[in-house]
């Protein structure tokens, strides 16, 4: 299946590994995939934009969805007397806004393989099916996006929420992704 992925789609799948390492996740799910897809320039980001979304914002949302309640745990830090808000305020001041979160994403655990969850595998399979359905030869970022939308998965729910907040819906994004997939073919 991977031999049919375009360079960009393959890069997004590889980058999802990096996202997962950055967030210290034990597995890669569709939120990691969505985060890497939306931060890579290409057809997926174009489709998001065409549907009225800001790809960078979608990526940030996906990362947030992953890190909420994970390692940098404000509650646990408060229990030992560390005020994370205060730490954040100071690091924003010295290193720029959002520095602490960016630093987390950059701390990579090299060499450790992070496995895909079943729903992420399912989304990848569905992206192949979307490509077949649209009679496209290669699987690119748009097909991955359609696969994530098709699968019942956490990444899909992040997209749904983003679309909802932007006053649009899944159908609009699906149409945007399908249309651009057609014109590119």
């Amino acid at each position: 299946m991977f031999e049919r992925f375009t360079k960009e789609a393959r890069a997004a799948v590889v980058e999802a590994q990096q996202v997962a390492r950055g967030t210290r996740s034990a597995t890669i799910d569709t939120r990691h995939l969505l985060a890497s897809l939306s931060s890579t320039a290409g057809p997926a980001a174009d489709a998001l934009r065409a549907a009225g979304l800001d790809p960078a914002e979608v990526g940030a949302r996906a990362r947030r969805a992953v890190t909420e309640g994970e390692p940098l745990d404000a509650g646990a830090l408060a229990a030992v007397g560390v005020d994370l808000d205060e730490v954040r305020r100071r690091t924003d001041e010295v290193f720029g806004a959002g520095a602490l979160d960016r630093a987390g994403a950059r701390t990579t655990r090299r060499g450790k393989h992070v496995p895909f969850t079943d729903d992420a595998k399912k989304a990848l399979e569905l992206s192949l099916r979307e490509a077949v359905r649209l009679k496209d030869k290669g699987i690119d970022g748009r097909h991955l996006l359609l696969g994530i939308l098709r699968a019942d998965c956490p990444g899909g729910r992040v997209l749904q929420a983003a679309l909802h907040d932007a006053g649009t819906d899944v159908a609009a994004l699906r149409t945007a992704a399908e249309r651009s997939a057609r014109t590119a073919a």
């Binding site: 210290r24 390692p71 940098l72 745990d73 646990a76 830090l77 030992v80 560390v82 994370l84 730490v87 690091t91 010295v94 290193f95 520095a99 602490l100 630093a103 987390g104 950059r106 701390t107």
Partner: peptide, 13 residues
């Protein structure tokens, strides 16, 4: 765990 993660991030920065 949270302290370790925080220390790692501060070190990176």
């Amino acid at each position: 765990r949270a302290l370790r993660d925080l220390a790692d991030r501060l070190e990176t920065l």
